[in-house]
Design a binder for these strands. Structure first.
Lengths: 376, 376
DNA sequence: GAACTTTTATAAAAGGACTTTATATTTCTG
DNA sequence: CAGAAATATAAAGTCCTTTTATAAAAGTTC
């Protein structure tokens, strides 16, 4: 794998990047003329930059175009397999590994059960399982861009530690406990933030959006002005701890009335002592206590969504594993939210996510894909 | 006033703009070498661009620097008076006019009382008073960049109308009713949005911030990732209609439990039938019913602020005319907010604005200043 | 199927904007 | 007052892009 020449001015690098990015974002392969025309560049400029990218192995030919009355154009696309990234998600009982190529396509996936006790030695276990995962799938380590790790935890970046992870029963743990056994570039991020990033990044039009993650905890992410928005402490989008019922239910965080106390999946499983499957089966059968809980949950969820809408005036995407079950109730959520809304007549801005299960794992791998593109 | 040559490539325009912007943002005048060094440009490039800007009248000499051992450097700064912008704020009982130069300094101000009945013919009145304002202050119309108009109203941009303006007792009025008599470029914006823009734009470091405006109504603005964030319908930052108390107090918007119902200045004046001055005098004297209301207001204000913090993880700036009275209570607000907060130990992120009175008028004028700079 | 048109691909020359180098100008220092 | 140091400007050079020219490939026409 040859590398691109580095003795180049910033301007040229930008032009080259814009060409690569264009091919990366394009759904299908493109011809040189399409690139030149869409990027408002001259043919020779496109030609030269493509030659470099081609020589470095970052783009490849993809057949010839049908003639439109003259010489047939060569179709070009990115070489999707010259690099890959791995995302790992850590939850209470599982490690999930996902490897994706530069087209963000899955090239391997694995799901490892954990004992509760193992959380304390998670770093070593993660590293070992990662090596197994790479070996089992014959993945070439020299092509590995990096390993992203998604955790259901509030991360304090400055201090390099986990400030709070109620679902993992962790607090004030150093991040290096998790990462010190890794021999690859790594990046640690909150699971909801990663999930929102994945949903947003894989949209054809990277619109602004607020992502509300409904899992054991409730979190989220904010993607605005064409970029993820992190905030002062990479703690934006913590919608779960907005107070929507003063003196309301007590939350795992110790405060009262948090959105999370009302809308997390744990509220269902812990309060009733049943699984989500059992709950939604019972709900279908009109179990009255299930219905009461569900109605209260949807009401407070709608309040939370409406508050996000008031602040950000953008689509609100519902994500997290609870979302798998929400499709039949979406119209009800929209109805309640619309009633609460001062400005909108409907709540079509509420949408369900595309990856209720693997969003955070994907998102944290995308961090490296994106970095690769930005530095090409 | 000569204009800059227009037959220029985009690249050169960017360089020229970066130089002008550098002088615009600098607190004091600068030398050529300072510009070259801070912008990583060579001296000849700086020299050439400055020559053009100088010839066009957009920058001026500002004396000579003390020598540091050789030829004295010429100090340069922007010509602040070659253009100006006017901001108008419309409220129930007043029109306020503010003219500012390119340094955002006030060059004229006027405050006109309105009869309640006049709201319906506001367009004509505004235009007439504007002409008077320009005449009285001898302002040169050829230098006028445009007239910004701030209204306490939700504006529907697509339909070009005021969707809702409870404090003005207006609904579904076309914007052209207000602007059709104006012979200048104009721009209409929500007052809280403009206020936030002014607070943000005049900060030396344009950090991210959420602006919460406390006036007769409660609104706000969101300024993130180095730019104002507008949202899908230019309706972001409508914090006043976040629900923070389900089934709580009824709001002017018709819903229940809105932040505005709890924290607007109208709550004080309407509920008690007194002015704000009277209220805060009575509060100092420990009037018990005043204290009860005030405590409830601060509690709900803190809930609202905390919710904004959870979503955006950035400074929350309190603005609007109620803010004039808040200084003695800031520590209490911070204390309550810190108690509500899951992550932060203190609430130093809550800050008071710099312009409790003229922020919206200034902000809407800044729209044109900013446009001028961006297109130089 | 030869000649022509159309489209794609590449090479050579030219132009724009910046930097480097050189030189002039001004001011300070000994 | 000569030399050093800093600022200001001019001339030459470099990089990257575009324009122009030309080659190559495929369809169209007679």
């Amino acid at each position: 794998m040859t590398e691109l020449a580095e003795t180049i001015t910033e301007r040229r690098r930008q032009t080259r990047k814009s060409i690569y990015k264009y091919l990366f974002c394009a759904e299908t392969s493109r011809s040189k003329q399409e690139i030149a025309s869409d990027l408002s560049l001259s043919m020779p400029t496109v030609h030269q930059n493509l030659s470099e990218l081609f020589q470095a192995g970052f783009i490849r030919r993809d057949g010839m175009q049908q003639s439109t009355g003259g010489r047939r154009a060569m179709r070009l696309t990115i070489a999707e397999n010259v690099r890959f990234a791995v995302g790992v998600s850590i939850t209470e009982d599982r490690l999930r590994f996902l490897a994706v190529n530069l087209r963000m396509q899955e090239i391997a996936y694995k799901n490892v059960k954990l004992d509760v006790s193992e959380v304390n030695a998670i770093g070593l276990r993660l590293s070992e399982e990662l090596e197994t995962f790479l070996n089992e799938n014959g993945l070439n380590r020299t092509k590995l861009l990096g390993v992203g790790i998604a955790i259901p935890a509030v991360i304090n970046v400055e201090l390099g530690k986990i400030a709070l992870a109620p679902t993992l029963h962790l607090k004030d743990i150093s991040l290096s406990e998790i990462t010190k056994y890794l021999n690859y570039p790594f990046y640690v991020s909150n699971d909801a933030t990663s999930g929102g990033y994945a949903e947003w990044y894989t949209q054809p039009e990277q619109n602004r959006m607020a992502y509300l993650s409904l899992e054991g905890g409730v979190g989220g992410a904010v993607l605005l002005n064409g970029a993820p928005y992190e905030g002062d402490n990479r703690r934006s989008g913590e919608f779960g701890h907005m107070c929507i019922e003063p003196n309301g239910l007590i939350c795992k965080c110790g405060k009262r009335g948090c959105l999370e106390a009302y809308c997390s999946a744990s509220r269902i499983s812990d309060d009733l002592g049943i699984t989500l499957e059992e709950f939604f089966e019972g709900l279908e059968l009109q179990n009255p206590s299930y219905r009461a809980l569900w109605h209260d949950l949807l009401l407070h969820l709608s309040i939370g969504i409406n508050n996000i809408r008031m602040a950000l005036d953008c689509d609100v995407i519902l994500g997290g594993f609870l979302t798998q079950y929400l499709e039949p109730y979406l119209s009800e959520i929209r109805r309640i939210a619309a009633e609460l809304n001062t400005f909108d007549n409907n709540a079509d801005y509420i949408k369900l996510c595309r990856y209720p299960k693997r969003a955070s794992t994907l998102g944290v791998a995308l961090y490296f894909i994106n970095e690769f593109i930005e530095n090409i």
